[in-house]
Design a protein around this nucleic acid. Sequence first.
DNA 1: AAGGCGTGGAC
DNA 2: TGTCCAAGCCT
Length: 288
Amino acid sequence: MPDLAPPLIAWYRDNARDLPWRREGFGAWGTLVSEFMLQQTPVARVIPRLEEWLSRWPTPADLAAAPPADAVRLWANLGYPRRALWLHRAATEIRDRHDGMVPRDVDALLALTGIGDYTARAVAVFAFGDRHPVVDTNTRRVLARAVEGRSQPRPPAKADLAAMAAILPEDDGDAAVVNAAAMELGAVVCTARTPRCEACPLADLCAWRAAGYPDTGDDRRKQARYEGSDRQARGAVLKVLRDADGHVAPAAAVIAEWPDPQQRDRAIDSLIVDGLVEAVDGMLHLPR
DNA sequence: AAGGCGTGGAC
DNA sequence: TGTCCAAGCCT
């Protein structure tokens, strides 16, 4: 297998985007918050919310001291609002278990609410400079094409970590750059739909290109339809409560015009189960 | 382990 | 238009 690290490192040095979390001394808390926000959410939508969030809650203890409702409100339209709740819980856990300091150890990070294989290693590598494989959807696509010769990656699997580890250089700093470079390449060149292969630093080494860009299929699971879904109903309920500015809203008045009342009630119930909504005497509000 | 979970831009 | 996609995690 060709060594992908040198061309990735050289390309990243000249082509990395200037993003807030790549600034010198951005801090582990900032990195952690950015990674939560970036889970399934585009960079351009994250940046303004991130600045606002860190300005308001500069440390985990600051966030832990705030009501969860404030976190859900500031999360605004980033989507998947459970992440706001999970980030608030993680901040509380960091305060209570780690003296308010973001832990450096991968297992300690994995034990925090809302942190999985990707986020734990992203923090350990990008905030602390340690040597671990970091695998996100971009990395999976780059490896699938360059190494396996596939047009799209297989569904995420634990084996992905070993595949990334196999191309990491020995040096911690170089390994961190290769992790970042694989993600960056997947984000701006080796994209899902219209890859810019003419601008790819791995073109000469790419197994997919060598094979003539075959369509090898895509067995990843597809997103469920959003229009008419419970998720859409949940989103509508939560938007009303976010905009209620601290006041509670009668359950019946929340999206009263929703076409399917049973679905509306089901959405409210599931939001309560998730802890995103609290009900008192039939009145709803964000969690205090 | 397979499915649930937001939101909006691009094509 | 509808479909795809976006630095995943949880149960």
